[in-house]
């Protein structure tokens, strides 16, 4: 048996489609997780509720202490039992969102800590409070300083989407499995998918380190 590049080429169009699905899944999961994490962060900070902050801490510990694959299975297999019949794609995005949110909450906590206390006081002294205080003053600054780690988290999500192949979501990994289960040339096909994952992740992570150096220069 020899490595036959023709099988990689043949698979290329479908692999490209799969890459697009992968990108979409990652972007959706990322968008939802940032929204969810922002809401949690604001609620936790503004309400100063002990119960809420303990609940969030346990949630984060659970997500960070267990494999994403198990989390995906939990969402995918358990929700139908409680009567929520969502398909694999929705379940997959939901699992990614719940997972990523834990990490984004941690990132935003760091970003929030970098907002000087004087900013809160200045805004309050101007009569800003509640919604306006957060949306106009605090959150923009939190996000600005969180951009590099957020981009980094996006690469993690990009890689994580491949796990959704295990619950039959037809993204890049699953597409390649479908192709090689027909042509029996797994190495050639997987190599194609492998290169695509690498190009996507490498581009984004290079962008992240570029952003990081940009930010350091600006802050210095």
């Amino acid at each position: 048996m020899k490595f036959d590049f023709i099988y990689t080429l043949d698979a290329l169009p479908r692999l490209l489609e799969g890459s697009l699905v992968t990108l979409k899944l990652a972007l959706l999961g990322f968008a939802f997780s940032v929204v969810l994490a922002t809401l949690v962060t604001v609620a936790r900070t503004a309400s100063k509720s002990r119960i809420l902050s303990i609940a969030v801490a346990v949630y984060i510990s659970f997500i960070r202490g267990t494999p994403l694959l198990v989390q995906i299975f939990l969402v995918f297999y358990v929700l139908p039992i409680v009567g929520l019949n969502i398909g694999p794609v929705t379940a997959g995005i939901l699992a990614l969102t719940l997972n990523s949110a834990a990490f984004v909450i941690e990132i935003l906590r760091g970003g929030l800590a970098s907002v000087p206390k004087g900013q809160f006081e200045a805004a309050r002294s101007l009569g800003l409070s509640g919604y306006a205080l957060w949306v106009k003053v605090v959150l923009p600054q939190t996000f600005m300083s969180s951009i590099p780690p957020l981009v980094n988290e996006f690469t993690q999500l990009l890689k994580a989407t491949a796990l959704l192949s295990t619950i039959t979501v037809v993204e890049l990994m699953r597409v390649s499995q479908q192709i090689y289960s027909n042509n029996y040339h797994p190495i050639e096909v997987l190599t194609g998918a492998f290169v695509m994952y690498f190009l996507m992740c490498f581009a984004v992570s290079r962008g992240a380190s570029w952003l990081e150096s940009e930010f350091e220069v600006k802050r210095a």
Binding site: I187, F198, C201, S205
Partner: peptide, 22 residues
């Protein structure tokens, strides 16, 4: 280092699974 850090672990696993016997 860059290759293993910038690809999903699951595809690495499958690559090893098929490449080693190859």
């Amino acid at each position: 280092i860059e290759i293993f850090r910038n690809t999903p672990f699951i595809i690495q696993v499958f690559m090893f699974f098929y490449v080693l016997p190859f």
